[in-house]
Design a protein around this nucleic acid. Structure first.
Lengths: 110, 110
DNA sequence: CGACATGCGTAGACAGTCGACATATCAGAT
DNA sequence: ATCTGATATGTCGACTGTCTACGCATGTCG
């Protein structure tokens, strides 16, 4: 799947995979890949900046650790992040509903 | 609704509203606005370039006319355009399914 | 005359994605 | 020893498609 189509939705996906448990960037990419059965292969050049935006906006909080000699920055959802995720899901439902309605055919409702 | 989120889907919407009947650019914008109950207010700066891309790619064919002293360029779907619309709808269903699956919460299936 | 709807189009700004690269550690194979 | 690949973070320039804001023109209504 063309990840370009994700434009504007990637941050929501990141928040979603951080909901289960804190993860570092690499693990976020892996989690999205697994949850999408390989369909969504995010790039570091998209995800790392996104994580920093989310941290800048107070939706996640990152902390460094050292695991097997490799440094990790692990991010966990903040309260604001949980609220943002809930709003993201609502926006997503509305988005799919509206676009599906215009697009017609099957799958109109989101 | 933030039309930025449409990135990559706008051309599909244009094809969809051209399916019922040929329309000119201004009418495409109006049709999308109406079908979305006002939620999607497309800009000329997005739609006109999109129509030209679609024509360049052979999905629509445009022709000039003069109505009430104003010139219009009316676009109609080509056979390739109909096929592209069908594929767009499939891509959309797959896209919403995959993203919804990762996003979780309600509305996972698309 | 002015405001507004209709109608096409362009220009520059902007943001988020991309691929490619740089750096580093560790495991396992050669 | 050396190489390859997985793990892990990050930056960079290119690209693309939005956006806002124009310019131009016609017709209608006040």
């Amino acid at each position: 799947m063309d990840a370009e189509a994700l434009r504007g939705h990637l941050e929501s996906l990141v928040l979603a995979v951080l909901e289960d448990e804190p993860r570092h960037g690499y693990a976020v990419i892996e989690a999205v890949r697994e949850r999408s059965a390989g369909a969504l292969a995010l790039n570091t050049g998209s995800v790392y900046p996104a994580l920093r935006r989310l941290e800048r906006d107070g939706f996640v909080r990152g902390s460094w650790s050292l695991v097997d000699g490799r440094r990790r920055r692990t991010y966990r959802l903040t309260g604001a992040g949980e609220a943002e995720l809930a709003e993201s899901r609502q926006r997503w439902r509305r988005f799919t509903s509206v676009v599906g309605g215009v697009l017609g055919g099957q799958g109109a409702t989101g």
